[in-house]
């Protein structure tokens, strides 16, 4: 069993404008990247479930030159609303750290 935090050297989230969050997942090495960057555990459906976003909007850009996959999704509520808890979306990645990749 490999968790996302085991297979990566760095993960970050940040707002990409007021309506989007973008997540950069740097895998530890080429092997981990090849094996996991498009695995089902990192599917649009996972993002819809964990972040309450619409799976149809989730964007995924693999960047093998960095052993990185960039996954972006619309915020469930726009930045700064009544129930805002993470204005810059900088802590959103933490909920995925323990997700099991295989």
């Amino acid at each position: 069993m490999t968790r996302l935090s085991d297979a990566t050297r760095h993960i970050r989230t940040k707002q990409a404008g007021p309506f989007w969050v973008t997540m950069d997942i740097w895998f530890k090495d080429e092997d981990s990247y090849t094996r996991y960057h498009d695995c089902p555990a990192l599917s649009a459906e996972t993002f819809a479930r964990v972040y309450g976003t619409n799976a149809d909007f989730v964007k995924r850009i693999p960047m093998p030159e960095f052993n990185l996959v960039k996954i972006s999704y619309p915020r469930a509520t726009p930045q700064g609303g009544m129930i805002e808890r993470d204005m810059h979306s900088g802590q959103q990645y933490a909920r995925l750290l323990d997700i099991e990749l295989d």
Binding site: T22, D24, K59, I61, M63, F66, L68, K70
Partner: peptide, 13 residues
Amino acid sequence: VSAHMLYENTNPY
């Protein structure tokens, strides 16, 4: 330098 293209951006290319 190249990693900055990722920053706060949904498409780095």
